[in-house]
């Protein structure tokens, strides 16, 4: 009953906006509507965050097929748990990223998991592709080095560096304090640098600023 009143209020608020479009609703409003079983709100949310969720899962797993499975699981959880979700000052995306990261970590712990993209792209043997080959080789090492990081360190790096989350958001997604996130990031970057140096990849700029 309480939820029905909330959903009605949210639906009314969204409809009364100048555009009256579902696409203009905030994430939190969409989640409230989804909690009431609104499929249109669900589709808007999937369209809004689908690419980013796929990107995060792909960076975490380095396997597009796995990333697609994980993204589906994550959004199905949104559908199933929307009615239970309580913002408590947190953004919806923080919760969504937490779900994705946890699913990725769970998936990678399974023995059958294999990051098929780890093999890298096939080498291009054309003479004019030497520069491309160098870049491809370096990317291969970077991917392997990222893959060698402990799960939580990689998650922190992906959220902070690639996904552009603020330290507060990334800490929320990993259920850490900001200072703990910062320590994790320092360890991640240090470990990554050592791993790359072990593979002969230069990780410090040569010129002084």
């Amino acid at each position: 009953m309480l939820r029905a009143v909330d959903v009605g209020q949210v639906a009314s608020r969204v409809a009364q906006r100048p555009t009256g479009r579902m696409q203009d609703a905030s994430d939190e409003e969409l989640v409230a509507l989804i909690g009431g079983g609104d499929r249109r709100a669900y589709h808007v949310l999937v369209e809004r965050h689908g690419r980013r969720v796929l990107g995060l899962a792909r960076r975490m797993t380095r396997n597009l097929a796995e990333a697609e499975d994980i993204s589906q699981d994550a959004f199905l959880r949104v559908w199933q748990k929307a009615a239970e979700w309580q913002p408590r000052g947190a953004r919806f995306t923080t919760w969504l990223y937490r779900v994705v990261v946890n699913l990725c970590i769970d998936r990678r712990r399974k023995p059958s998991f294999a990051p098929i993209e780890a093999a890298g792209d096939p080498a291009d043997s054309r003479p004019d592709a030497e520069q491309t080959l160098v870049a491809v080789e370096r990317d291969r090492h970077v991917k392997a080095a990222l893959d060698a990081l402990p799960e939580r360190q990689r998650a922190a790096l992906v959220l902070s560096y690639y996904e552009g989350l603020s330290n507060v958001e990334a800490a929320g997604a990993l259920e850490l304090s900001v200072s703990a996130l910062e320590s994790l990031l320092v360890r991640a970057r240090r470990a990554l640098r050592q791993e790359l140096q072990g593979r002969g990849v230069e990780t410090a700029t040569k010129e002084e600023p």
Binding site: D139, T203, A204, T205
Partner: peptide
């Protein structure tokens, strides 16, 4: 500190992960 940070950023930035 800048050399190390900038160098690692440079390595990381080269890694594309476009979502098709």
């Amino acid at each position: 500190a800048l050399r190390e940070a900038d160098g690692l950023d440079d390595v990381l930035s080269g890694l594309s992960a476009e979502v098709p």
